[in-house]
Simulated assay, not measured.
Amino acid sequence: MTQGPGSLEGKVALITGASSGIGAAAARVFAREGARVVLVARREDRLAELSAELRAGGAQASHCAGDVQISADVERAVSHAVQTYGRLDVAFNNAGAGGDVAPLHLLEDAAYDLVMDTNVRGVWNCLRHEIRAMTAHGGSIVNTSSVAGLVAPSVPAPYIAAKHAVIGLTKAAAVECAADGVRVNAIAPGLTRSEMVEDWFARVPGQQAKSMASAPQNRMAEPEEVAEAAAWLCSERASFVTGATLPVDGGRTTW
């Protein structure tokens, strides 16, 4: 899904989880495609560094540190986008947490709460504030689910439950917002190079080889490959796509 130059030309885009992995890759891809980007994550030092890199390359970029679990933080980030660039056209709700690696009957409540609050409440908070900013002129929102939102791979149960819930929120929002010209879709990445995945491999012996063999392409995605799919869904090239979940998984969910 390589984008031609300018597929997001002039759009104002908010990206959560932008301090690393898919989110940071999306910041670069969206900016390359002409978007003015607002980067959101908890680690402000990383956001500042990435924003500076994008501006040095000629993009319009700013950042707003915040935690998607906190509604007020998301509201502040959306307000920052509107006040800085005049509107919000595109949002990529990508922030997420993987949680502890253990069978569900051995997990404590805190492990469940962290995953659900980040991955589900976080998307919930983002959708509410983003939709309010878009209803007057339309827009496009993409939520990051996972292949764990489609099947039950060897990842913790709370993560599977959370990523299924993201797809449900995506469908509900897509139906509710269609009349306002707001499209809402999800991507379902498979194994992708990221801090979360590297940490998982470090904690579970043999998991990397098992995961690499779980899809026909027998490899890990680079973050940019997933970001390209999100950029396409956010662009007008996907104008008749809403309520969909796009697997970006190297064929993981085909067998």
Rank of each mutant, 00 (worst) to 15 (best):
K210R: 15
V226K: 00
L169T: 08
Q208F: 07
P153Y: 00
A186H: 05
I141V: 13
T192D: 04
S145L: 01
L191S: 03
P156N: 06
L246A: 07
V175S: 10
V182D: 05
A244R: 04
K210H: 15
L233R: 05
E195H: 07
T192S: 05
S194T: 11
P216Y: 13
E222P: 03
N218R: 15
T144D: 01
K163I: 01
K171Y: 07
T144N: 09
V147P: 02
E222M: 11
Q208D: 10
T245I: 13
A221K: 01
S140G: 11
V151L: 06
G206C: 15
C234H: 10
S235Y: 09
W200Q: 02
G181R: 12
E225P: 05
A186L: 07
A215K: 08
A209V: 14
I160Q: 01
E224A: 08
M220F: 08
M212A: 12
A178I: 13
A202W: 04
G250L: 02
A152V: 03
V142D: 03
R219M: 12
P223G: 04
E224K: 04
V248M: 11
S146I: 02
A221I: 06
S211G: 13
A244P: 06
K210Y: 14
K171P: 10
P247Q: 09
E195F: 02
V151E: 03
A179M: 14
S146Y: 04
V175T: 15
K171L: 14
T170K: 06
E224I: 06
E195T: 08
V204A: 06
M220E: 02
D199N: 14
A148P: 01
A238R: 02
T144S: 10
P205N: 09
S140Y: 05
P156M: 05
P216A: 12
W200A: 03
I141H: 00
A162V: 01
R237W: 09
A172S: 15
W232M: 10
G250N: 07
E228S: 12
V204E: 10
T242E: 07
L246I: 12
L169K: 04
G243E: 06
V166A: 02
V166C: 03
D249Q: 05
R237G: 14
E224D: 05
E176C: 09
P216W: 11
L150E: 02
A213G: 13
P247M: 12
G250Q: 06
V166E: 00
A238Y: 00
K210E: 14
V147R: 02
G243S: 11
M220L: 15
S145P: 04
T245S: 13
E228K: 13
V147K: 01
A178V: 13
V182T: 07
D199V: 10
A231M: 10
S154I: 07
V248C: 10
P156G: 04
A173G: 11
A162Y: 00
T245C: 14
A209Q: 15
N218Y: 11
V166L: 06
W200T: 04
V155Q: 06
I187R: 02
V226C: 07
G251P: 13
V142L: 11
D199T: 14
G190F: 00
A179F: 09
R219E: 12
T242H: 10
N143S: 14
A157W: 00
K210M: 15
R237P: 02
V197C: 03
N185A: 09
A231S: 13
V241F: 11
S154C: 04
V248H: 03
Y159P: 00
